[in-house]
Amino acid sequence: MEKREVILSTRSLGKYFYDPIKFKVLDNISFNAYKGEFLTLVGKSGSGKSTLLYCLSTMDTSYEGELFIGQERVTGKKVNELAALRNRSIGFIFQFHYLLPEFSCLKNVMIPALKLGKYSYKEVEERAYSKLDVLGIRDQALKPAAKLSGGQQQRVAIARALINDPAIIMCDEPTGNLDSRNTRIVFDIFKQIAHEFGQTIIAVTHDNDFAEASDRTIELADGKIISHDKNFDTYL
């Protein structure tokens, strides 16, 4: 198999929590994520998945080791640079959809793009409509975000994560709150994003079927990577 482009990588990432007692929540985490890969992080509750994801997301900067996004060393950058980097290159989807309730779905999707300022307002609006279209909720665009069902809200959140065409999309239990039908929809969308649009997805999940069907699964236990699964070797 040909060598694929590395989008994100960590070198011996480690992190401590000091409260209530000092303990190592992440220990020597080193892995690569590749372009167009649908990657899942699994592990028992408390194994450090969310903590790792927050470090990868650049929102948590208190770790040791190094983080690279694209070719860039992210570790040690200033908070404002990191904010701009997130805006440009990382999309987020959370378990709780976290839309801004007083804005319409459309506006929620548009906000990161308006912040980016690369396109005019009109263009951003068009792009937002087309993302909502991809997710099958174009007809909900002008409704207030709070008036949608859980599954619909999650899809708006996905559209928002996609609006700036980020290289990486990170999700913490994106289907944790969804029924099996909506989980299926989200899963299909992720597959499409990764395989058709070539964006990398890093998703924390408890759902075994979900992980099973992804391209690759990394399993954590007590803050350490205990297994790169079946497909791991094909990437080396």
Binding site: V79, N80, N87
Partner: peptide, 16 residues
């Protein structure tokens, strides 16, 4: 506070 967290996650800096 949730909205603020979301804004910061999606790339709004402290000064924004």
């Amino acid at each position: 506070i949730n909205d603020i967290a979301i804004l910061k996650a999606t790339g709004f800096a402290g000064r924004d």
